[in-house]
Design a protein around this nucleic acid. Structure first.
Lengths: 168, 168
DNA sequence: GTGTGTGCAAAACCTTTGCAAAATA
DNA sequence: TATTTTGCAAAGGTTTTGCACACAC
């Protein structure tokens, strides 16, 4: 299956999922909401609201800032995107539709985001919840530090950093 | 050792630690900074900047809002408090001086914060970092969901919640 | 028609900052 | 005296909101 077809397929079922989520709440699948969904699905990695807004404007698919924020919330509630708070006061989003659960390492130097999965940690987490009779709904597991590339740079030039482009 | 004496002891060495941290940076251990430290050490559990500010005002140990924020940052850098972002745009602090590392579960209903420690998770985390050649500096591990008490309430009255006082 | 959705601009939120005066080494 | 610190109020950046108009069922 080509990347293109896969994207279409995902977009199709993502749209279904959004439609279902909205109609279950007597909300509507508007053109604006579809534009936002489309924009989200074509973003790669982690992006912020402003970047998405800009992308939509450049693509002549402009919607208002308010609509972007409001729709991102709907998408998050529908389980189509995840909202991350790696740094305070600045949310990043990633689309997670059709993707497996994963957690994140974030480089303090270059901002690079590395995904990781560890089933043992997930299992232990469940155990912890059972012990406390706590019903987990979601979790945030982020490891902050210095990525491999930045460590290498620091060894060579103790002050520079491999300026990572954007928020991958 | 009584609770009182223990607090004095902790306050004493916390003050030392702050003094060392500041003097190493050519900064001063001012009366205002001491008032903030004192206020922090007498808070229990998790509190926000505004609550601390109010507490200081009520105790006739008033300092400005700016000083509270600035000092909390110093305390965090000195390793005396930790700053948490359980919800976006609203930081909570806890004093961690002389306390062991722990992570948190946060109840979505009542806001209660439950601490947990799991050495196996910590070890696995280190393993994950090694695998990615990532140098961990700190991590955030938060589990969100419904605490035991709120689950019980939900069973009885599917809409109420045991309004938890403050952010313990 | 009644309820939703949109866009705009203004507001809200917590937090940080500039600045002049005060305090400290 | 040279720095640092304080308090105030104003600014900051992201996100949310009120409202009038437009749209959908």
């Amino acid at each position: 299956m080509s990347a293109e077809r896969r994207l279409e397929g995902e977009a199709g079922s993502a749209q279904e999922r959004l439609r279902d989520h909205l109609s279950a709440r007597n909300l509507r699948l508007t053109p604006e909401r579809l534009l936002v969904l489309e924009g989200v699905l074509t973003r790669e990695g982690h992006f912020d609201a402003e970047e998405l807004l800009e992308h939509l404007r450049r693509s002549n698919k402009s919607v208002s800032r308010a609509t972007v924020y409001r729709t991102l919330d709907h998408l998050a509630e529908a389980g189509l995107v995840k909202k991350h708070h790696f740094q305070e006061g600045h949310a990043l989003f990633e689309h997670v539709h059709g993707r497996d659960h994963h957690d994140h390492m974030v480089c303090d130097r270059c901002g690079r985001v590395i995904e990781f999965v560890n089933d043992k940690i997930e299992a232990l987490q469940e155990e912890v919840c059972r012990e406390h009779d706590f019903r987990e709904l979601r979790h945030v597991h982020q490891i902050f530090g210095i990525c491999s590339a930045c460590q290498a740079v620091e060894k060579r030039a103790p002050n520079a950093s491999p300026h990572h482009s954007g928020h991958a």
